[in-house]
Design a protein around this nucleic acid. Structure first.
Length: 858
RNA sequence: GCCGAAGUGGCGGAAUGGCAAACGCGGCGGAUUCAAAAUCCGCUAUCCGAAAGGGUUUGUGGGUUCGAGUCCCACCUUCGGUACCA
């Protein structure tokens, strides 16, 4: 290492270039002497054995009293890119738990499948003409190869794909149940329609009224299928208390549902003949502080005044028209980000009448009010709402104080006072606390017929249709009205589809499969690609023409209930049998990314509750315990992405180091939930560990278990078991490393210790585990071998070394019997730190048995 | 802004309110080797010191406690989510 030859080129350091280090390690591995443990031979061999012997087939005796665990991964979308190293993180965690629980005598269901409908396959089809089913099959094949190569103990006989007609059939069946219960309905929804692309765009894809590539986007109303998830809002919020989920996820779900209690209040608008103006507020107690009201740009009254000349001066009308035109075509998200910076709005010139005082207040239109929440209009109380305050300041509107922290008046308010307090300047309500005032105001309004208490939700009904090809067809058709009775709509005969008379496809006719298309483009009308499949779309029944729904379901549909199909995947008579349900449900452990904290988990819970109401499922909640694995970042600490060039491919790692090493490394990186960077240089540590386990177990084993080894063994079993139960995988591996290092130092490692080591390592590194189990004289797989137990007596020491502190600083240590009394401890402690105590008075002595002694001196 | 998570050696990280830095990577020294790789052994938070030993240290500042990485308050930073939700 010393610079004896300064002219020689410097060696590349392992950490300098992530890709270079992987390649150089790979290159270095090949010319080497044959490894004692050859992962390239051993790993595929055991994978074949597990396959051939169906080792991990989940079976459960209906009469069994054995405990069960249903261990579920969030199943992947089989993309063309294959697995990235983030996938095996959660999958390894569930696999370890599955393997551990099997060894602990528990029946385990651990399935895997494919969430295979979705946009990438369709977009690829549009570009290349390759049918999405072809792309999907190919990608599934690749994903499955990669998962098998990692040695996961899935019961592959239960594999399902959301695109399989036998699966689609039951997805559609659930939709029909929703439809029959009135939970699926059609509505006209404003969408971001981009004529140039021929597609509807998501809010995040629209900026400044344009698509990413600058094509103009129109906000147009479109007929959509909706699911009435709002009918379940309260139960979705309340039942969160039944599950063992991360606190953050629970909070996000509650916030998304956004239940808030308040009141709707009616304002008359002078000169407006339509319905009165309704507002929703969570603070009815501030009603006496209203100084103006605000409409969202899409509010019907704004539309009415634009179209009705003569109610207000024309220049006002035109200003409103300009403002609405400028704001209404922007996506909600876009609108709100800019609105947060600058409170824009215009005075309509209309006048609203206060429901209690009869006072007249101006009506404004502003885009800080959202059309889709509450009633699309608010009563503005600038004295007690920050947004109203900012708006009033910007536009010179009056600000009134009606809630006071101390019951006194404070003149000019410098900021909105949004806390609760005591009503002031509120007429009959003066002196009431906020809570009392809320109900008093609601009672008064109710008496006047101008308002009532109301619960409002942020949650909106779920837009369930997509104008796409690669999704489940919605099993609905509509009567067709022909202009001439003998016309054929397939040949373009003029006709009208009666969308207001939807008819459910007969359940016996399911699945309704997709027609084969060559052109998958969404098309130039928003009805979607299926509208062009006229032979599929139109059909005759009893002499009448009908048209099928041409919208398809969103990708969420298949993932909403896949956990239920895994329990009985081959059943063609019903969605799943009651026996299968009783055997395996609910899901005991569900692991997946935090990016699904709201939508997927909320939608799946919603469907589960609907099935609960239908009597199909017995538990109110599907997923008992949920864990999110943390993201694995690239070597540079940034999110892995192709564009950054920091993506690590599991195929490379498995080829060079083996599946067990990838599994061990990902579990050793840190806590499962933590976000952590990939560091190729760290792999070396688990490679050494694996090879050391192999080396220790393949030496000549001894028959005697020395006392110190026995103690360490029992302690190790105890800690490993406990940490496994807590899913603290990184500390399990540390503990096993310590144990292996100890065994490696022995002349002949004791057989019992080595056998238990192999069993404990096997959930993490199953290939090495099985191979060593075989090499140590066992014929059967260790997959169902009983998990080692420990003797508590061997986990406690007879004598303990206890640090002695003086005023909290360690100044000495003493050896004590484990059951030493406090007096004995005191005597030993004072003696050991005698010199430090010279001339000082002992004020207090604290002894925590076996842990610490602390002498407090004055 | 709000909600959530987190800040500990050169790096990944460990630590029921009780010896901070386990385990691993890297580094340094040694054994083995003609030499290297691999392997094995030892040392490795930091500062002062030849050593014995001592001081300091878990983002910052306070607090509670015999004792705080851990609990409380305020602040700073990073990451994730989310957004005028009335």
């Amino acid at each position: 290492m010393s610079a004896e030859n300064p002219g020689a080129p410097t060696e590349p350091t392992a950490t300098a270039e992530p890709t270079a280090s992987t390649e150089s390690s790979a290159a270095a591995a090949e010319p080497r002497e044959p490894l004692r443990y050859d992962h390239l031979e051993v790993e595929p061999r055991w994978q074949r054995v597990w396959d051939e012997q169906e080792t991990f087939r989940a079976v459960r005796d209906p009469a069994s009293t054995r405990p069960k665990r249903y261990v579920l991964d969030m199943f992947p979308y089989p993309s063309g890119d294959g697995l990235h190293v983030g996938h095996p993180e959660g999958y390894t965690a569930t696999d370890i738990m599955s393997r551990y629980w099997r060894m602990a005598g528990i029946d385990v269901l651990h399935p895997m499948g494919w969430d295979a409908f979705g946009l990438p396959a369709e977009q690829y089809a549009i570009r290349t003409g390759t049918h999405p089913s072809e792309t999907t099959a190919r990608n599934i094949g690749n994903f499955k190869r990669q998962l098998k190569m990692l040695g996961f103990s899935y019961d592959w006989s239960r594999e399902v794909s959301t695109t399989d007609p036998r699966y689609v059939r039951w997805t559609q069946w659930i939709f029909l149940q929703l439809f029959k219960k009135g939970l699926a309905y059609q509505d006209e929804i404003t969408v971001n329609w981009c004529p140039a692309l021929g597609t509807v765009l998501a809010n995040e894809e629209v900026t400044d009224g344009k698509s990413e590539h600058g094509h103009p986007v129109e906000r147009v109303p479109l007929r959509q299928w909706m699911l009435r998830i709002t009918a379940y809002a309260d139960r979705l919020a309340d039942d969160l208390k039944l599950v063992d989920w991360p606190e953050g996820t629970l909070a996000m779900q509650r916030a998304w549902i956004g239940r808030s209690e308040g009141a709707t209040i009616t304002f008359a608008v002078e000169g407006y003949e339509g319905d009165t103006l309704k507002v929703f507020t969570t603070r009815p107690d501030t009603l006496m502080g209203v100084t103006y009201v605000v409409l969202a740009p899409e509010h019907p009254i704004a539309d009415w005044m634009i179209k009705t000349p003569g109610k207000v001066p024309d220049e006002r009308r035109e200003a409103v028209q300009r403002y609405v035109a400028a704001t209404v075509n922007r996506s909600d998200r876009d609108r709100l980000t800019s609105a947060a910076k600058e409170k824009t709005g215009v005075d309509t010139g209309l006048v609203a009448v206060h429901p209690i005082t009869g006072q007249k207040v101006p009506v404004w239109v502003a885009d800080y009010v959202l059309g889709g929440y509450g009633t699309g209009a608010v009563m503005a109380v600038p004295g007690h709402d920050e947004r109203d305050f900012a708006f009033a300041r910007a536009h010179g509107l009056p600000i009134a104080e009606v809630v006071s922290p101390d019951g006194k008046l404070h003149g000019t308010l410098e900021a909105a006072f949004t806390d609760e307090g005591i009503a002031v300047q509120s007429g009959a309500f003066d002196g009431l606390t906020t809570a009392a005032c809320k109900s008093a105001v609601v009672v008064t309004l109710k008496g006047l017929g101008r308002g009532d208490g109301q619960v409002s939700y942020k949650l909106r009904d779920w837009v369930f249709s997509r104008q796409r090809y690669w999704g489940e067809p919605i099993p609905i058709y509509f009567p067709v009205e022909l202009e001439s009775p003998d016309g054929d709509p397939r040949k373009g005969a003029p006709h009208r589809v009666l969308f207001d008379q939807p008819i459910a496809v007969d359940e016996a006719e399911l699945p309704l499969t997709l027609p084969d298309l060559v052109d998958f483009r969404p098309g130039n009308d928003p009805a979607g690609a299926l509208a062009r499949a006229v032979d599929w779309r139109y059909f005759q029944k009893e002499g009448r023409w009908y048209a099928r729904e041409t919208n398809t379901m969103p990708q969420w549909a298949g993932s909403c209930w896949y956990y239920l199909r895994f329990i009985d995947p081959q059943n063609d008579a019903e969605i799943f049998s009651e026996a299968a349900y009783d055997a395996w449900m609910p899901v005991d452990l569900y692991i997946g990314g935090a990016e699904h904290a709201v939508l997927h988990l909320l939608y799946a819970r919603f469907w589960h509750k609907v099935l609960h109401d239908l009597g199909r499922v017995k538990h109110p909640e599907p997923f008992t315990k949920l864990v999110h694995q943390g993201m694995i970042l690239g070597e540079d600490g940034e999110k892995m992405s192709k564009s950054r060039g920091n993506v690590v491919n599991p195929d490379d790692i498995v080829r060079v180091w083996g599946a067990d090493v990838l599994r061990l490394y990902e579990m050793f990186m840190g806590p499962l939930e933590a976000v952590k960077p990939w560091q190729s240089s760290q792999i070396q540590g688990v490679v050494r560990f694996r090879d050391r386990v192999y080396a220790v177990a393949t030496r000549a084993l001894g028959d005697t278990l020395q006392d110190d080894t026995a103690r360490l063994l029992h302690r190790t079993v105890k800690k490993v078991t406990r940490d496994l139960e807590g899913m603290s995988f990184n500390t399990v591996i540390s503990t096993l490393m310590i144990f292996v290092n100890h065994l490696a130092g022995l002349a002949s490692p004791p057989r019992e210790a080595v056998h238990k080591l192999i069993l404990m390592v096997s959930p993490f590194a199953p290939h090495v585990g099985e191979e060593l189990w075989r090499l140590t004289g066992h014929e059967k797989s260790l997959a169902y071998e009983p998990w080692p137990t420990w003797d508590e007596a061997l986990c406690v020491d007879d004598v303990v070394e206890v640090p002695v502190q003086v005023n909290g600083k360690v100044r000495g240590r003493i050896i004590l019997a484990k059951d030493a009394t406090e007096d004995q401890a005191r005597a030993a402690a004072l003696e050991s730190v005698g010199s430090t105590l010279a001339g000082k008075q002992v004020k207090k002595f604290i002894y925590v048995p076996g842990k610490i002694a602390n002498v407090v001196v004055g």
